[in-house]
Amino acid sequence: MNIEIIGITVLWIFLYGYLIVASIDFGAGFFSYYSMITGRKHLVHGIIERYLSPVWEVTNVFLIFFMVGIVGFFPDTAYYLGTALLLPGSIAIILLAIRGSYYAFSNYGSKDNSFYLLLYGSSGLFIPASLSIVLTLSEGGFIQEQDGQVVLLYGKLFTSAYAWSVVILSLVSILFISAAFLTYYANKAKDYKAMEVLRGFAIGWSAPTILASLLVFFAIYRHNPWHFENMLHYAWMFVLSLVCFLFATYFIWKRQRLGLAFILVMLQFAFAFFGYGAAHLPYILYPFISIHESVTSPEMGIALIIAFIAGLLLLIPSLYLLMRLFLFNAAYVQGKSGK
């Protein structure tokens, strides 16, 4: 395997990691707020808070990791995407900043401040939309290079069916992923009332998720036929994704094997995400940046991969410890062990 393939695989894995943990996080913030305004806060808030408190900081790191990695491995992305994304990127940063800080303010500081909760809960819904613009841009057709200047064509972006279908998919899938996880978590905590509420959310968001996925397929076919052709080569991955989804929804419906159900949800998104990514190769930003032309120098590539392996050796045991102490610790999950 060569450096560019290793590089893009590493980055894609991290982006997938971010997709899962951030979805749980963003969705949880929204459910937390939604249950408060519908008078069900006492049912689910405790569960959500117990899960999020020790891990919210970790979520952010996945995103930073991806950002740093993509510039390190493929420096040209900084030039094209950096210039084109000034506006949507800055808005994403501001939303992330509001969300992150107001989460801390409302959970550690002023616990009953509903305004803080509103800021934290609602900003989470807009972040996936603003971040998903990067995926949209990578399909090509929205960035132009004129007289050495990189320009983002906003008119085209806002009227693009593809762009909107990606936004819708990102929105409904965070709610689905989050609800599926929290259902499992609440069940583990033996908090059956919370479990029922969250299960309702999961079932409710399952059909929109699959519909939005179909919409994206259709929109890619219209927008970038080359990419759609490629995706057909990986059709088996998308079929597997659908199978995982069906089993996951079945288990959640039946209130059985909720842990397995969440793993199936993760697999569902893994198959779709990696299938989508593999079909997109060799382009990172179609048609400006392909992984072969813009890869970093071999010395730096190797150093990055070594640093990456060393980092993983450090991170995996630490993450394991974190999960043992909080996710898979019965007393903690059930709220019996104090702060």
Partner: peptide, 9 residues
């Protein structure tokens, strides 16, 4: 990229 990467770790 290397120190930036390590900073993230």
């Amino acid at each position: 990229a290397l120190p930036l990467f390590m900073e993230t770790f």
